[in-house]
Design a protein around this nucleic acid. Structure first.
Lengths: 143, 143
DNA sequence: CTAAGACAGTCAATGTATTGACCAATGGCA
DNA sequence: TGCCATTGGTCAATACATTGACTGTCTTAG
């Protein structure tokens, strides 16, 4: 019965995060999009209008430096575009290209399917409870 | 009251993992050790004897290629050593150096303190339940 | 006993993620 | 008005993490 040497909660979260991205990657592979790129496209898609780079970074809780790089890749791949913000000369306005929107709309069902398969044979209640605890930990650690 | 735009469980786990490593890093900073390096030292410390590189990789659920690189850094920093395994010419035997063992013993209390502060003002029961659900997800996703 | 497959380790390429340092623009406050 | 802290964005350095491709050793089936 194993008795796995008792994985620490911290180690567990990190390992689970790695596993999730590892297993999620093939879902988007046909569109040549990585899970993180998918996440950015999702944020942009659900945001109505253009967003600043910093706003996207905050919403995903990554550093703006990281977002600079990811956005550069996304732009080079033709999924998103940056334009100057006339109201704030420091800022950029990031929007999805038509191709970006088409890609995310095509991939969303695949993601949903994968996502619900993930929760199968686990209790809905347990998942919701875990999600809530995770939210609390995030809130506690976030600045 | 927020009503955070409802974070997906998957996104939550990934963001939490990033936050955890980000907040954990300063705990080990004085010893110039990263959280992942700490994790490897921990595994080696608790393993009794020497381990193969692949065994460490499996125990942390990372690829052996990644472990190659991390181990190279650890060796260069003087925390671990590799020797040929006389029983299997493919394999290496990795052990902690005296410095590695001293470092982990010095850092463990700091980690424990950080770790218990993390769980403060959260319910023990909720944390345990979340840990269990995380284990189930890991088991489901692991090969 | 030999050929096929599995496994240990490495290298290279790419993507993710951090800190630190920096510049330009903004906003508040004296 | 003018200073100064904050914020938006970038660059560089480093670490983590994956896949793919490869060498060499072991194991096992025929």
């Amino acid at each position: 019965m194993a008795a796995q040497p008792e994985r620490d909660l911290v180690a567990g979260v990190i390992q689970l995060a790695n596993l999730l991205t590892r297993r999620l990657a093939p879902v988007f592979e046909k569109a040549r999009v990585t899970p993180q790129q998918w996440a950015i496209l999702s944020v942009l898609d659900q945001s109505g209008g253009p967003m600043s780079l910093a706003a996207v970074a905050r919403s995903m809780m990554v550093s703006k430096q990281n977002m600079t790089g990811m956005m550069a890749r996304l732009e080079q791949l033709g999924f998103a575009e940056r334009a100057d913000d006339p109201e704030d000369l420091r800022s950029s306005r990031v929007i999805l290209t038509r191709r970006g929107r088409a890609t995310i709309e095509k991939l969303r069902p695949a993601y949903e399917e994968w996502r619900s398969a993930l929760g199968a044979d686990l209790s809905e209640r347990d998942l919701a409870a875990a999600a809530k605890t995770i939210e609390q930990l995030i809130a506690k650690l976030a600045d």
